[in-house]
Design a protein around this nucleic acid. Structure first.
Lengths: 404, 404
DNA sequence: ACAGTTTCCCGTAAATGC
DNA sequence: TGCATTTACGGGAAACTG
């Protein structure tokens, strides 16, 4: 017996949102002789609650039993697919809501059990199986946190069930973690992260180290602590719940490493997929590396990287010949999903202009690092102009910045 | 007894969306002596179904009884407010779903009844009252149609209840209708439409007439037929359900007069309120009037009007000195809510540029019709540039069109 | 007051039904 | 099959609640 899983959110399975339908399928791997009776399967949510601790409790709002059927696609074994299942929270369990302790809701692990019972040659046989750990959320804003839990669990344990996993979550080696992160990118882009990109992520998470692979990353560093600030390293490495105290000291970055990364994944998925897959986006580059890359390049050389200060933002940095003759690096305010839905990023790169007073506006982006003429890299991604809208003349946006 | 009404959608009361909470209040206008007992009120949805015809049927999902209370704000009379009421459709009434005839769902009129019963000095007294007609919708996309019904009903009858009103809806005189339309604008802008604007609407609906005020407008012309097309008047004046036949012949305008107008109302509400209230938008101007206004004006004179072909779009038309020396009018592709959320309209006017090959981009908008220097009209509506986003340089959009 | 969490519901997209 | 209508649910914001 085994439980494949049809998730609500295809890229983030094993997360169920209350009030949103999900689908699950159970297959009976043992072939039963003489199947001329109906085998009814029942699903139960959280059949085995961990004894000591108090979770939120949920129940399946919709019908929970269904009869198994011969599956045509496989070799004739029995299976049943539950569709339109929906979860709802039981409120006021025992009249009181018990404090849930230090775990956040996305660290609570739940499970879906399946039961069936049949009688063969006078012997009653009980079948039972159980899903991998599930996270239950109530709003899509919790998907990022929930998916962090699913990844951490499956990366670090082979146990099919351990609801207390996050009571003391083990650390991960960077070797393990980087593989998982890279895999996250490959799940929807077809390719993972390269060595340089992973190296930047390792540095961001663990600082400069001789060898990252042996480093251990804690759960809280991955997903609960604020991202290191370059300007103020010590103070920002505090749990989120200390944020108000800290807020006055450091502006920005009220997000964890994983939250930062997951927003980038979403940005790529929705707005950057073709140019990402075409390797036009260096993406994960520290400011130091960026400087090292660009400082000796000719003016007009640029690279694309994800903002470290703005969630889900991408920026470009280019080399400008300054008046003193020395090269200067300039980065544009990061483009986020809302701005990218006004104009696709490739068009922004094509049309971007800097206006310096008294001078003719100029596009400062000429060569994609290390030195490929811009249009050669991006031409195939430029959007063709929209069709005519007779009797009007069509209109679009030109992205600009004003320099002093 | 009387029923004020707290709507879900504040600007469009008397419309209830299934599954969305609404609130209603009943007040007892008779003052009862010696009120030392509890007066329980019960709400019933569609207590009196019209005998012959078959409506969709709904019921109140939530609790329907509540005890009246002395209202403090008024002079101590009894009242009760039902909150969190929610409507759900009864499916499969009597096992079959009967065809509903020619009425669309937004033409079905429903009602909410209130009952109370009390005993005073040995006499049983039944109280009962009923709301004005209500429209029930299942999606906000039906708000426009529902509100048309509410307006038409209340404009043309004083009956508190007539569920069959739309079986043969009376016509409205343009005098009545124009007053209601103007009032729609004033409900959220503080001022109605002026004579010229109303005149354009009258022409759009009824064609050129000596006196519009006496004209009668049918319900279907108001809200069910396609808007007249200037290029093809006859063919487009057909009911929406004939659209597929017509579609091949005429592009665009698959919407009724009221739908067109309501999208404009929404556009004003969300994106144009300050400049609308400042009378910068002439808005309702036919192409003929536009030409008459602008043809002798100096180049750079422009006006703002709502698109007749694009739902919820606003455009500007300006005078361009053409090569032949003759004035030429050019209109930009209408800006709709999605594009206006990228850049506010006032900024678009300020920054708009036309690029003609080989020439320096130029802003063709100089004088707001009849001749007010642009900045004088719009300066107070320009958005200040966004704050700095250190260490990035800020970026924005410049709206442009390319000519030839 | 406040942060974590849930609820609410618009608006788009997809599904459903006639 | 096509349109009218409903359902689904992401996403932003408000409400809730210890």
């Amino acid at each position: 017996e085994k439980q494949p899983w049809m998730p609500t959110h295809p890229q983030k399975p094993l997360i169920i949102k209350t009030g949103v339908q999900f689908t699950t399928k159970v297959r009976l791997l043992v072939k039963l002789p003489e199947v001329d009776y109906q085998l009814k399967v029942k699903t139960i949510f959280d059949k085995y609650l961990p004894p000591g601790r108090v979770h939120r409790q949920f129940f399946i709002l919709t019908s929970t039993t269904k009869v198994m059927d011969v599956e045509e696609s496989s070799n004739g074994c029995l299976s049943v697919e539950f569709r339109h299942l929906q979860l709802k929270e039981k409120k006021y369990v025992n009249g009181t809501k018990v404090n849930e302790g230090p775990l956040s809701v996305t660290e609570e692990l739940h499970s879906l059990s399946f039961e069936a019972q049949f009688n063969i040659q006078g012997i009653n046989i009980d079948l039972e199986t159980c899903s991998f750990p599930l996270v239950v959320i109530s709003n899509v804003s919790q998907l990022t946190g929930g998916w962090a839990s699913i990844m951490w669990y499956n990366m670090l344990t082979d146990e099919p069930r351990n609801p207390d996993f996050f009571a003391s979550p083990p650390r991960a080696s960077w070797g393990q973690l980087s593989e998982v992160l890279s895999w996250q990118f490959s799940t929807f882009t077809g390719q993972g992260l390269n060595r340089e990109q992973l190296c930047m992520l390792g540095e961001k998470l663990m600082g400069q180290q001789a060898s990252h692979n042996e480093c251990q990353v804690s759960w809280s560093k991955f997903c609960k602590l604020l991202v290191e600030s370059f300007s103020n390293k010590k103070i920002t490495s505090l749990p989120l719940n200390l944020l108000p105290v800290v807020k006055e000291n450091i502006p920005g970055k009220p997000f964890s490493f994983w939250m930062w990364l997951d927003f980038i994944l979403e940005l790529i998925k929705k707005h950057l997929l073709p140019i990402w897959n075409d390797n036009c986006i260096m993406g994960f580059v520290s400011k130091e590396t960026e400087r090292a890359c660009l400082k000796d390049k000719e003016p007009g050389t640029f690279l694309l990287r994800f903002s470290e200060s703005h969630l889900g933002g991408i920026t470009f940095t280019w080399v400008k010949q300054s008046d003193s003759g020395e090269a200067k690096l300039i980065s544009v305010e990061p483009y986020t999903k809302s701005r990218l839905s006004a104009l696709p990023f490739a068009n922004i790169i094509r049309d971007y202009k800097v206006i310096t007073d008294g001078e003719v506006p100029e596009n400062p982006l000429k060569f994609l690092y290390p030195g490929i003429p811009k249009d050669e890299s991006f031409r195939r991604h430029y959007n063709s102009p929209q069709s005519k809208v007779f009797p009007y003349i069509s209109a679009t946006w030109i992205p600009i910045s004003t320099l002093q």
